[in-house]
Amino acid sequence: MSESGLPCVEGLFSAEDGVATLHGSKCTGCNTPYFPRSEACHNPDCTGSNIVDFDFGGSGTLWSYSVADFPPPPPHKFDKPFAPYAIGVVDMECGLRLIGQMVDKAEDVKVDAKVELVIDTLYHEDDVAYSSWKFKQI
């Protein structure tokens, strides 16, 4: 984490000792992970639907990415002047295909690259840094 601050949305993730942890859930019946937490299992072949908390982090492979060349409309928040950023779709080792901003510059991002989860600043408001999870190419 580049600076101390607050998460952009409470309860979704945390960063301790520099390690990014996302707080999801998992069905113990069929082992399906969810993020954010799901209250029920979405697998129609799973009769258990026994959901427990599931924390994950770690690394994955970049399935694809795009670039936000224009500022997205609210409720997105960003520091001005707007700087284009890359958005990654990552196949995580924990079994989730997860979306997040990339820390890397758009021109450096490559499909199929190995990436890891980090927590990084998303925007500032009233001198407070608000953070989110992002991907960083390894």
């Binding site: 949305v9 409470e10 795009s66 936000a68 779709v89 979306i99 499909v111």
Partner: peptide, 30 residues
Amino acid sequence: GVEEATDPEFLRQRCIGMPGPSFWSTLARR
């Protein structure tokens, strides 16, 4: 426009910032 943490679309826009065109672009890139 409702800031509700149970709305997946709100979460995607606040935590990431991925409007329709960026969503489609990941598909195109793939």
